[in-house]
Design a protein around this nucleic acid. Structure first.
Lengths: 346, 346
DNA sequence: CGTTAGCACTCAGCGGTTTCGAGTGCTAAC
DNA sequence: GTTAGCACTCGAAACCGCTGAGTGCTAACG
C-alpha cells in the first residue's frame, strides 16, 4: 500500500492531514504550498492531490472545495507518517495528580482515569472495568436477604467488589451458610475465576460431592454466584466535550453518537477487541466500518495488574484528532493505572 | 394570584399552553379560536392575551409572533388548570414489565426504573439512590488489602452494597479484624446509620472504651467506615432522548444541559429538596431560577422502603412537557419501586 | 519528462433585497 | 364588552449576484 506512494506524496499527504486536523476545513493546494514551503507550485501539489484522491486517501466534499482525509488516509497517516510526541513533564504531572487521592476504590480509580483522559485530551474518556472472569478470588460473603434470596458479595484480589442476588429453591440455614462461606474462602483464595469455574465442574462430576451435603451446596452456591458474567462495565466521561467539535454541529451525527454511548454494546465490543492486543490500538470509524461511530476514532490501550491485562481505557473523539498528542496521553494513563493497581494489590 | 384571572382568562391560558405543548410553536390569537371554538373572535382573544402577558403568564418572542408560556405560566397551569390523566392499564403494564426480572440488585432496580421512565416518557429518566445515612445496618465486612489498607463492605437491610477503602495508621491483625467484625455485626444490626453514628460518639466519650482495646478499635474502624457520605449516586438514563426536542436544536442550550448532567451536583440538590416533600414535585427551570436548566422542567417523586422515604426519581424534559401524561408516569413508577423494595426486604 | 503558469470553470457561502404571512395593537362601530 | 377593520411589524424563506477558494486541463518550460 505504501509502495505506490513516493516520498513527495507522503509529505503532501502528511501536510494535508495535519493542516486539516487543526483547521477542520478542507485543504486546498495553495494553502499546502503556503504553509509548508516545499519548493513546489500549487499546480504540482494539485496533481499529487489528484493522485492521492485516486488512491483513496483523500476526498473532496464537493468540486470546488479542498480535500479532506478519508478513513484510509488517517490509517496510513497513523501507521506510517505519524511522529508521536513525548509528553512534557508538566503534562505527565497533570495526569498523575488526578490519582493522588488516597484510598481510591478500583471503580473510583477507573472513573478518575476516565475524567483525566477527557479533561486532558478534551475529548471523551472511556474506561472498561475488569471482567469478573479475569480477576483473582479473595473473599466471598453470603448474606441472607429473605427466604431463599441471598446476596453474594465477591471481592477480588485487586479490591474489585461485585455483588449479585441469587435465588434458591430450597432454603438454607444461617449456620450452613457460614460453614459454606468459610469453606469457600479457605479453598478458593488465590485462584482465578476461570480456574474456580473449572474446579466446580470437576468436583461436581466427582462422586464425593454426592455424599457431602455441605460440599454440594457450596459448589452450587458458588457456581450460581459466578454464573453470569457481570463485567464489562463501561465508564464514559466528558461526553459533552465532544459537542465542542465542529464535526458534531450536525445534530443527527451527534444524536447517533450519544445513543451509542448510552447503549454501550458497540463500545464494549470494540474495547474487548482492543484488549486482545498489546499496546495502543486505534479504531477509525468510517462510513463503511463501525458506521455508528462514523467520523469518530477510538484510541485505546490496556491496563493490567500483577496477573496481566485486565481492562481497556482510551479516548473517543473525531477522526480529526491530534493523534501525536492523544496517543501518548492514553498510553501514559494506561501505564499509570497499571502502576497504581500493582502497588495497591501489595 | 389566581384571583386576578377570570374564567375566560384561564380557559384561554390553558388552551394556549396546551397548544404550545404539542406544537412547540408560538400560539397566535387566531389559532386559539380555530382549535378551541369558544365563541370568541380572535380580537377578543387578543385582548385577553395582552392581559395575560401583562400578568406575566405569557411572553412573545418578538412583536409579530404568537405567544409562549413563561415559567409563571406553566406554574399556574400545573397548579390550577391541569387535569391529570389516569394511566391506562396498558401503560401500567408496560411500566411493570420493566421490573419482572428476578433478583435485581437495588442499583439495577433503580437503573431499570430510570430506563423505564425515559423510555415511556420519551424524556430523560433520573434516579437518585438512597443515601447511606438513611439506610439500616445489616452487615459489615472488613477485608485486608495490604498493610494498613482495609476494604470495608457495608450491606444495608435493603440489600444496598457500598464499599470503601480505609487506611490505618497502625496495622491490625487478621484475628482482631475478625473479632471486630463479629462484634459489630452483632451489635449494630437493625440500627440506622444515623443511630450508629450517634452511638459511636457516645461510646467514644465514655470511659470504658479507653480500657478495652478491641472496642476502641472497633469504634474507630466503624466510624471511619461510615465517615464520608458516599451516597447521592444519580442515574441518568436516556439523555439522548432530549436531543429530539426542538427546543434543543440550539446547540448552546444542549451543551449546557449535558454539562449539568455530567456534573450532577445541581441535580443532586434539586432531588434532595424534592425528597423533603411528599408526592410529586415539579421544578421549572426558568431564566431566573435554576438557570443551568433553563427551559427544562423536572418532575419528581419519592420512593421508600419499610423505613420510609429513601430516594427520589423523576423525569427531566423541556418545560413544554405533556404534564398530564408524565406526572402519573413518575408517580406510578415511584410507587412501583417502593412496592418492590418493600417485598424485597422481607 | 516532470514541473509550472495560465485559464476557464465550479460551486458553497455571504450579504442584500424582496416577498409572504402570521400576528399584533389600536380604533371605531356594533 | 365584543368585534371588524386596518395599518404595521418582523421573522422566515426565496432569490440573486458576487466573491473567492479551489479544481482540471493544456501548453510551455528547463
Amino acid at each position: 500500500m505504501a509502495a505506490d506512494l513516493n516520498e513527495r506524496g507522503r509529505l503532501i499527504l502528511e501536510a494535508i492531514i495535519e493542516d486539516y486536523i487543526d483547521s477542520a476545513e478542507p485543504i486546498g493546494s495553495r494553502s499546502v504550498t503556503r504553509r509548508h514551503q516545499m519548493g513546489l507550485s500549487p499546480a504540482t501539489v494539485r496533481n499529487v492531490m489528484a493522485d492521492l484522491e485516486e488512491m483513496g486517501y483523500l476526498v473532496s466534499p464537493h468540486t470546488s472545495a479542498g480535500r479532506i482525509p478519508t478513513g484510509k488516509g488517517y490509517r496510513f497517516y497513523i501507521d506510517s507518517l505519524l511522529q508521536i510526541r513525548q509528553l512534557t513533564l508538566q503534562e505527565k504531572m497533570k495526569l498523575e495528580q488526578q490519582y493522588r487521592f488516597k484510598g481510591l476504590r478500583i471503580e473510583e480509580l477507573l472513573q478518575e482515569a476516565g475524567k483525566a483522559l477527557s479533561a486532558i485530551s478534551s475529548y471523551t474518556g472511556i474506561v472498561m472495568a475488569p471482567r469478573l472472569a479475569t480477576t483473582v478470588f479473595r473473599h466471598i460473603e453470603f448474606i441472607r436477604l429473605s427466604q431463599g434470596k441471598i446476596l453474594v458479595v465477591f471481592v477480588s484480589q485487586s479490591g474489585l467488589v461485585q455483588n449479585k442476588i441469587i435465588e434458591l429453591e430450597e432454603p438454607i440455614g444461617q449456620e450452613e451458610l457460614e460453614r459454606i462461606t468459610n469453606y469457600l474462602n479457605h479453598t478458593l483464595t488465590g485462584k482465578t475465576i476461570q480456574e474456580i469455574k473449572e474446579m466446580i465442574l470437576d468436583e461436581m462430576a466427582q462422586e464425593k460431592a454426592l455424599y457431602n451435603q455441605m460440599l454440594k451446596r457450596a459448589l452450587m452456591l458458588s457456581g450460581e454466584a459466578l454464573k453470569d458474567e457481570l463485567g464489562g462495565q463501561v465508564f464514559i466521561e466528558g461526553a459533552s466535550n465532544i459537542m465542542e467539535q465542529p464535526e458534531f454541529y450536525d445534530l443527527e451525527k451527534m444524536k447517533r453518537l450519544f445513543r451509542t454511548f448510552e447503549q454501550k454494546s458497540l463500545l464494549v465490543d470494540l474495547l474487548d477487541k482492543s484488549q486482545k492486543a498489546e499496546g495502543v490500538q486505534i479504531f477509525i470509524g468510517s462510513a463503511t466500518e463501525y458506521t455508528e461511530i462514523e467520523g469518530c476514532s477510538l484510541i485505546t490501550s490496556t491496563y493490567s495488574n500483577r496477573q496481566g491485562t485486565i481492562g481497556t481505557l482510551g479516548v473517543i473523539g473525531p477522526n480529526r484528532m491530534p493523534y501525536s498528542m492523544v496517543i501518548p496521553i492514553v498510553d501514559y494513563t494506561a501505564k499509570l493505572v497499571s502502576q497504581i493497581l500493582a502497588i495497591e494489590s501489595d
